Amino acid sequence: MTILVTGGTGKTGRRVADKLTALGHTVRVGSRSGTPPFAWTDRDTWAPALSGVRAAYIAYQPDLIVPGSLDDIRAFTELAVRSGVRRLVLLSGRNEPEAQACERVVRESGLEWTVVTCGWFMQNFTEGYLLEPVLEGAIALPARDVAEPFVDADDIADVAVAALTEDGHLGRTYELTGPRLLTFADAAAELSKATGREIVYIPLTMEQYAAGAAEHGVPDEVVGMLNTLFTEVLDGRNAYLADGVREALGRPARDFTDFAESWAHSSS
């Protein structure tokens, strides 16, 4: 069957697409550069991308927390039903009310479904906007001393692939975390130890962070999303561990130390 992977060039989508391809599945990468192209901001691209698809991985860009995400997920899900899609796997934000509303849409669609909820990815430090600060040795964020169970994007992808291709995950919601709680200062210390370079965490106020982001040309809507993530979601609500990786895959989640050492080795 053809499997559509939306966000197919993103942190999790790229991994999901690669793992599915390695297993011999027919994959349609949902991205602006895909064939056919797909963009969450252009609904005219959705129907061609869903044509002939039997399962879809939903990774919404930029985040389910942004205004309009619920309308998009509802419209996409309804179109998936009309297009003959049988199974949906939704990547959702952990304990985010907006994301939970999107989860309900998928659960109530009448299709086979699995929901995968996550918080901060380990790879945010090495593949996203934090890579440059990490390389420069200073991670400046308004994250205070809140602990987060950073989760590995490959663990997320492995769970998503299992849910897309196996029947034992239908109707399940998997809450994925790493095996330890770490503050951002702890994460910086782990990265320092792995790389042999000093990497420090510098706490900022949200006002300081927003001003700096604006100076660097970050759009207002992105600054607003980051404000919500840092002030409302990174407030301690996710400072606990869950065992979704083991529940789905029968193995433990990857630890941050292993991730940091692997990245340091590959980038040296």
Rank of each mutant, 00 (worst) to 15 (best):
L226Y: 10
A210V: 04
T2D: 04
V245Q: 05
S267N: 10
D154C: 13
Y240S: 12
D72Q: 15
T41Q: 14
L249R: 12
A242G: 02
R28I: 00
G244E: 10
R15Y: 12
E247M: 07
E78V: 10
A160F: 06
V115E: 07
E78Y: 04
P97T: 08
P203G: 00
Q100G: 02
D42K: 12
E103L: 01
A56D: 00
G119R: 08
L181S: 06
C102V: 06
D18W: 01
T12A: 14
T205G: 12
F76N: 08
D154Y: 13
Y240M: 06
P133A: 03
L70F: 02
A153R: 03
A187K: 08
S268M: 02
G13Y: 02
Y209C: 02
A138S: 13
G30R: 08
E132T: 00
L234C: 02
A101R: 15
A194H: 14
T231G: 06
T183K: 11
A213H: 09
E148K: 07
A248Y: 08
P203L: 10
A153W: 04
T45W: 04
G250L: 15
L70E: 02
A147R: 10
S51R: 13
V245P: 09
N124Y: 12
D258V: 08
A55W: 13
V115L: 12
V134N: 05
G137E: 07
T45R: 05
T257C: 09
E215Q: 11
L23I: 00
S83W: 01
E103P: 04
W120L: 13
V200P: 03
L111C: 12
D158M: 05
E232G: 03
E98W: 03
S83M: 15
F150D: 03
V116M: 06
V159P: 00
S268K: 11
T26H: 14
Q61N: 15
M1A: 12
T41K: 09
E198Q: 09
D158P: 03
A39G: 03
Y57R: 01
R144H: 10
M1Q: 14
G224E: 15
A75I: 07
G7P: 01
F184T: 06
K19Y: 07
E198D: 03
T126P: 03
A242S: 13
A188R: 07
M206E: 11
A17H: 03
D72C: 05
P142V: 08
G24D: 11
D63C: 04
V105S: 09
S51L: 05
D220F: 07
A147K: 06
S92D: 07
A187L: 08
P37V: 14
G128E: 09
I73N: 07
P62G: 04
T177I: 07
S51F: 06
L191D: 01
A248M: 08
I139T: 10
T257W: 15
A213F: 05
D186G: 08
S268Q: 11
R32A: 01
E112V: 06
F38T: 05
I65S: 14
G7N: 05
T45V: 01
